[in-house]
Amino acid sequence: MKLVKRRAGWVLTLGLLSMLGWSLAVSASMPSWFDPDYDCGRAFPQAEGDLRRVDEQWLPPRAGCDFGSGEVHQFISTTRSTVLTVVFALTAALTVLGLHLVLRRLWEPQGILRSAEAVDLRRRKLKHLGLGAGATLLGLAVFTVASVFAAFLGGPPGMVIVALFATIALSAVASTLDREYGPLPSTARDSRRRGTLTGCVTFTTVFVLTVASGKFPFYQLWIAPVGALTYLVVTGLPWSRQSQRQLS
């Protein structure tokens, strides 16, 4: 169990990837979004009339082809729906376990206090802000493209999973950079807390601005520089407080 705790991030990543795979499997089991008439017609050649609508449900996975005859034909078999539901339960449990282990690390003992003695803090700060802003810019640009694929291939669950994955990835990168180049004196727990806060605030900012712009659920590339700027602001605050303490 101690090994699992030390690898909490990997457990959470595995859970999220498993859930993304589940969303792709469910999406592939449903009629194609760009040509449902063909898929429903091929699955139910005996049905009379033209396809009126497709009733979709993600949990438990169901898809009904309605040809207007009063009978809704189930596109996903009961067996497949049951298997996908069980898979969802397992992947969700793994994800919740990983998230629980990751959050618990925010309340672990502080650990060794790293001193600022004999450290060029100005150079350290520039590395921290520069590398972090660059990583955030690149990461959000990749997320913008990934979210489009998730929307079309994984549906709403896929989009939620990719967004959660992006938030966790931003937090992980911010925590790592904070530990390596962040303000001193500091502990590993301090870096994890600051990094988690930075990642969550950064993604929340671009999410809110995307919704406000009316573009949601499709993110635009402008979120990358906005996210990088948000990272600089949030990360710069601890450095400002450290400078004030030194002056006092």
Rank of each mutant, 00 (worst) to 15 (best):
71 E>C: 10
72 V>A: 14
73 H>C: 08
73 H>G: 13
76 I>A: 05
76 I>C: 06
77 S>L: 09
78 T>Y: 12
79 T>L: 13
80 R>I: 03
80 R>D: 06
80 R>C: 03
81 S>L: 09
81 S>H: 02
81 S>R: 00
83 V>C: 08
83 V>E: 11
83 V>K: 04
84 L>I: 02
84 L>M: 04
84 L>P: 00
85 T>W: 03
85 T>S: 11
86 V>D: 08
86 V>G: 06
87 V>P: 01
87 V>W: 03
87 V>D: 10
88 F>D: 00
88 F>P: 01
90 L>G: 09
91 T>I: 08
91 T>A: 14
91 T>W: 00
92 A>V: 10
93 A>W: 00
94 L>E: 04
94 L>I: 11
94 L>S: 10
95 T>L: 03
96 V>A: 13
96 V>K: 06
97 L>T: 12
97 L>R: 07
98 G>K: 01
98 G>H: 01
100 H>E: 15
102 V>Q: 11
103 L>H: 09
103 L>T: 10
103 L>E: 06
104 R>Q: 08
105 R>K: 12
106 L>Y: 02
106 L>W: 06
106 L>N: 12
109 P>T: 04
109 P>M: 08
110 Q>T: 12
110 Q>E: 15
111 G>M: 01
112 I>W: 10
113 L>R: 04
113 L>H: 04
115 S>H: 06
115 S>K: 01
116 A>D: 13
117 E>I: 11
118 A>K: 11
119 V>N: 11
119 V>S: 10
121 L>D: 14
122 R>Q: 13
122 R>A: 15
123 R>P: 03
124 R>G: 12
125 K>Y: 09
125 K>D: 14
127 K>G: 15
128 H>M: 06
128 H>R: 00
130 G>Y: 07
130 G>H: 03
131 L>P: 04
132 G>V: 07
134 G>H: 01
135 A>C: 12
135 A>G: 10
138 L>P: 08
141 A>Y: 06
141 A>N: 07
142 V>G: 15
143 F>V: 05
144 T>Y: 00
145 V>A: 15
146 A>M: 10
148 V>C: 11
149 F>K: 02
149 F>Y: 13
149 F>E: 13
152 F>V: 11
154 G>S: 04
154 G>V: 00
155 G>T: 01
155 G>E: 01
156 P>E: 12
157 P>F: 02
157 P>V: 00
157 P>K: 02
157 P>L: 04
158 G>D: 06
158 G>Y: 01
158 G>M: 00
159 M>Q: 10
160 V>I: 14
162 V>S: 03
162 V>T: 05
164 L>C: 14
165 F>C: 12
166 A>F: 07
168 I>K: 11
168 I>V: 15
168 I>P: 09
169 A>G: 15
170 L>Y: 11
172 A>C: 09
172 A>I: 05
173 V>W: 07
174 A>F: 01
174 A>D: 08
176 T>E: 14
177 L>F: 05
177 L>K: 02
179 R>F: 13
180 E>R: 15
181 Y>S: 09
181 Y>W: 08
182 G>I: 00
182 G>D: 04
